[in-house]
Design a binder for these strands. Structure first.
Length: 503
RNA sequence: GGCCCCAUCGUCUAGCCUGGCCCAGGACGCAGCCCUCUCAAGGCUGAAACACGGGUUCGAAUCCCGUUGGGGCUACCA
């Protein structure tokens, strides 16, 4: 492929960007970068009724957080702007008129009520109402009405829409990069509305006009658009434009059950469906986001890339550059992919290990007010000690609180296991072993304590278990000697003595 | 209902185009073992799939047809 690859991500600002939308954006981005092309963000806000305040800003913020930058878009003109369809309003009408002039479209005056009536009427009879060659002669439009009548209606500025005149008895052979050839019989196609009575184009018209004007080379979008492909293809033909290549991505399905992934699933199963937290401007309802839940963007991107695509090798960990290099549309799957909240956690755990300890410490400190006064270096060392057990920054506290404060209690089960009859005596002896250690370093602690245990033929676990429990409050965590070194001699002894007093 | 798309372990998937190397490989999750003062991590091992039925062929997960199942669309929404 040459280097004039231009792709676009064209969401409509009707709410927060869904995780499936993120994947669509990602695949577009990967494809563009792989071919040294441009990735364009276009805002498809032709539906004034569904416009949601803040949705566009959310989109930009989400893409930024995901590290999927666009080359052109609103506030980032690349010579093909504007990039909001509402700002391109004047452009579309002339193209609709052009289609009428060439006989590919017509005016329709039917009211919403009339259409509604026909649909219901057909449904009752077990049929489907399709506005096309089949019945357009019986409806109110510039094909059924006389020229004079049409002109009169237009002159009276009666409300009208412009519909595409879908041909009869044609077989369309469409090509999709992912799916191969798709065959469609035009007889079952309906005369889609291209231009609405409110003066705005529908998605179909605006989409084709903009893709053409913006010189889009590949349209990579979700599978929900596959049924519209025939219309879009015919539109390009009607305009006499060269059509871009199409690739329809498989949908992301619910983890369990039927249907595609929805916000509800996230709420029910306890995982986010949106990249960033979103507060609904109307209901004030808050939807959680991957960012706020402690996911790293690298983890989300890596996971999302593997939903419907894979490189064909056994490598699974890919950074963005590696993804760009390896990505091929031809390797995208056809079938829908279930979203697996467990696997994205695994990716997050992986990327957590790759994070810089100091950076993690900062994030950890910001999250926990208890840590505000604590030295960042100390927190970073603690993080280094416990992070292999952590999947999220917000899980760090549970894994490391005993580095910052004495354990508030002892785990009951562990206490039963660790505290035996001779424990008190052993701990008293242990204190006398620790007390004289001048240089309170890990190696010294290790040799002194282990030496004392072996010399006196004491069971290792008999000392280590209650020791750990005294320090940590539970039988978990990193090396005991590391913990002692970190909290220091005084605190170590203090915690052991607390246990002694308790026994 | 109609139309279009799809179908390999529970899940993500390799293999399918160019049939034999596949009694089907990897990963997540699950189980066990090892490591070990503990919990993790890590290492090793295991259970786990070609939806079904017909063809074609010496031979089919791979090609064809049908059935079943799943998904999407069916708005003056995108």
């Amino acid at each position: 492929m040459s280097n004039n690859v231009r792709v676009r991500f064209a969401p409509s600002p009707t709410g927060p960007l869904h995780i499936g939308g993120v994947r669509t954006a990602l695949f577009n981005y990967l494809f563009a970068k792989k071919h040294k092309g441009s990735f364009i963000l276009r805002i498809e806000d032709t539906d004034q009724n569904r416009y949601v305040e803040g949705a566009e800003q959310y989109l930009v913020d989400a893409l930024n957080w995901c590290n999927i930058p666009y080359d052109e878009g609103p506030e980032k003109d690349g010579g093909f702007g504007p990039y909001r369809q509402s700002e391109r309003k004047e452009i579309y009408a002339q193209y609709a008129e052009q289609l009428i002039a060439s006989g590919n479209a017509y005016y329709a005056f039917d009211s919403a009520e009339t259409l509604d009536f026909h649909r219901k009427d057909h449904e009752e009879k077990g049929k489907t109402f399709i506005y096309n060659w089949h019945n357009r002669e019986k409806l109110s439009n510039s094909l059924s009405l006389s020229k004079a009548e049409v002109e009169k209606k237009l002159a009276n500025s009666e409300e009208y829409v412009i519909r595409f005149k879908s041909p009869k008895d044609e077989t369309l052979h469409l090509t999709d990069i992912i799916r191969g050839e798709i065959t469609i019989d035009t007889n079952i196609l309906d005369d889609k509305v291209l231009f609405k009575s409110d003066g705005m184009p529908t998605y179909h018209l605006a989409n084709i006009v903009d893709d053409h004007l913006m010189e889009i080379s590949h349209v990579i979008r979700g599978e929900e658009w596959l049924p519209s492909l025939a219309l879009h293809f015919q539109l390009y033909q009607a305009f006499g434009w060269e059509s871009p290549q199409f690739a329809h991505l498989p949908l992301i399905l619910k983890p369990t059950g039927k249907g595609k992934l929805s916000k509800r699933d996230g709420d029910k199963l306890g995982f986010p469906v949106f990249p960033l937290e979103w507060k609904d401007p109307k209901t004030a309802e808050i939807s959680r986001g991957y960012k706020e839940d402690g996911y790293f963007p690298e983890a989300m991107i890596n996971f999302l890339a593997f939903l419907g695509w894979n490189p064909g090798t056994e490598q699974e960990i890919f950074n963005l550059n590696e993804l760009i290099n390896a990505f091929e549309l031809e390797r995208v799957h056809k079938a829908g992919a279930r979203f697996d909240p467990e696997k994205i956690k695994w990716f997050n755990h992986h990327y957590m290990q790759e994070q810089n300890d100091l950076a993690l410490a900062k994030a950890f400190q910001q999250l926990k007010p208890e840590l505000s006064a604590i030295d960042l270096e100390y927190i970073a060392t603690v993080v280094a000690l416990v992070k292999e057990r952590a999947t999220f920054v917000n899980g760090l506290w549970d894994l490391s609180h005993y580095f910052f404060e004495a354990p508030p209690s002892y785990d009951e089960k562990a206490a039963k296991k660790a505290f035996k009859e001779g424990t008190k005596d052993l701990l008293l002896q242990l204190v006398s072993v620790i007390q004289p250690i001048e240089d309170f370093m890990v190696e010294n602690l290790q040799t002194q304590i282990k030496g004392w245990i072996t010399e006196n033929n004491i069971g290792f676990g008999q000392v280590m278990m209650p020791l750990r429990l005294s320090l940590v409050g539970a039988l978990q965590g990193p090396d005991v000697f590391d913990i002692m070194f970190m909290i220091g001699k005084t605190e170590s002894i203090k915690r052991i003595e607390k246990t002694i007093n308790l026994l």
